[in-house]
């Protein structure tokens, strides 16, 4: 190759060959680079982005107390474990809900304000739930009645197994975009 290169007779031929040879070299470099980036990038992107595509929703049933812990009409704050939370995560795995036992049924409200997710506080007399962050107010049913929230507090499932009161855990509820005038 170097011999023919040196010959001036071959220069013309070289000139016509060079562009296609260069194209091949460029293609080879970019192609192998892209392949390498994809080979290393796929597992990286998958690891980083997989959590972003979790679906949320309901988790397992957890015992949060005994029937005697829940007198009629009393709203009780209970703690449950977030679905999928790792045991080594420390306290971060805890989440809370307000349980109210009523004649014939239960009301369980996930304690996540549907404005920006702060924990709300139940008020004994009025039965209202107030959010400390931006003053959202929900009524005893968990319906948004004043302030910024546009969506009611999310309800959780409750069941009684013997004396155990069980709550169906759930991921963090996310308020999605609502247009002005829309209800949810």
């Amino acid at each position: 190759m170097s011999d023919t290169h040196a010959s001036s007779d071959m220069a013309g031929q070289d000139d016509t060959q060079e562009p296609s040879r260069r194209k091949l070299l460029i293609g080879l470099s970019l192609g192998s680079g892209a392949l390498a980036a994809a080979a290393a990038g796929y597992p990286i992107a998958k690891a980083v982005l997989d959590p972003a595509f979790q679906k949320g929703g309901r988790g397992d049933w957890q015992t949060v107390g005994q029937l005697t812990d829940f007198p009629l009409w009393k709203t009780v704050l209970v703690t449950f474990i977030r679905p999928g939370a790792r045991s080594f995560g420390g306290d971060i795995k805890k989440d809370t809900a307000y349980l109210t036992r009523r004649p014939g049924d239960w009301l369980a409200l996930h304690n996540v304000c549907m404005h920006l997710g702060c924990p709300v506080r139940h008020q004994e007399g009025s039965g209202l739930y107030f959010c400390p962050c931006h003053g959202g107010v929900y009524n005893a049913e968990g319906i948004n009645v004043a302030g910024p929230p546009r969506i009611p507090l999310q309800r959780l499932g409750v069941r009684v197994e013997g004396q155990d009161v069980q709550l169906q855990s759930a991921a963090m509820p996310l308020p999605t975009l609502t247009w002005p005038g829309g209800d949810s």
Binding site: L49, P51, F53, R82, G84, A85, I92, K93
Partner: peptide
């Protein structure tokens, strides 16, 4: 939106 939110939390709720 929900994808961004879960990207930030590294999952569908707070976790380790």
């Amino acid at each position: 939106g929900p994808i961004l939110a879960r990207f930030l939390m590294a999952g569908d709720t707070l976790n380790a």
